[in-house]
């Protein structure tokens, strides 16, 4: 819902600012559409990378400002899920907000791993607001060198 300026239909005036603000509204609505695309405006989506080499799969998630104790990592079959909540810092009393671009609230990200992993050997580190989950590959997923004898 948006607040629209009341216009007196009897008054016809032209103001350049009206046109500017309607352009701004248009741009805002376009960006809002894109940023709220997955539906719930209360949730946010941290950016995520997946890497793979011969030994392991590595998943890295940007969680700046989320506390270590406020997220969970779970693995079910070949789907890794990272969920949690970014809590707002302690409310500053008597302060007014001039700019509020950061997302707070719950998030969840699931990713299908590119190969089977050893579920009991998964490790994770959290540094500089980036979570790194290391998932060693299951033996059957590692590349094997097969000697073929040519006759």
């Amino acid at each position: 819902m948006s607040i629209i300026r009341y216009r007196n239909p009897d008054l016809v005036t032209w103001s350049p600012y009206d046109r500017l603000s309607s352009l701004r509204d248009l741009l805002d609505s376009a960006f809002q559409l894109a940023s709220n695309a997955p539906g719930n405006p209360e949730s946010w989506t941290p950016a995520l990378d997946v890497f793979e080499d011969e030994e392991k799969v590595t998943v890295r998630v940007e969680l700046a400002g989320v506390k270590k104790e406020d997220f969970d990592i779970s693995l079910q079959d070949d789907v890794l899920t990272i969920s949690g909540e970014r809590k707002a810092e302690t409310e500053q009393r008597g302060s007014e907000s001039f700019r509020s671009e950061r997302y707070f609230g719950s998030f969840t990200r699931s990713v299908t791993l590119p190969s089977p992993v050893k579920a009991d050997a998964v490790t994770a580190t959290y540094q500089d607001g980036v979570l790194t989950v290391t998932l060693p590959k299951a033996e059957e997923a590692k590349p094997r060198k097969i000697q073929v004898n040519l006759e």
Binding site: E62, A64, Q92, R102, D128, G129, V130
Partner: peptide, 21 residues
């Protein structure tokens, strides 16, 4: 992304820079 609060004493600015030490 930035948040900016203002109070009588000054401003508090928060910026998200994941990956930066």
């Amino acid at each position: 992304r930035a948040n900016l609060h203002h109070d009588g004493e000054g401003y508090t600015l928060e910026l998200e820079m994941p990956g930066v030490a």
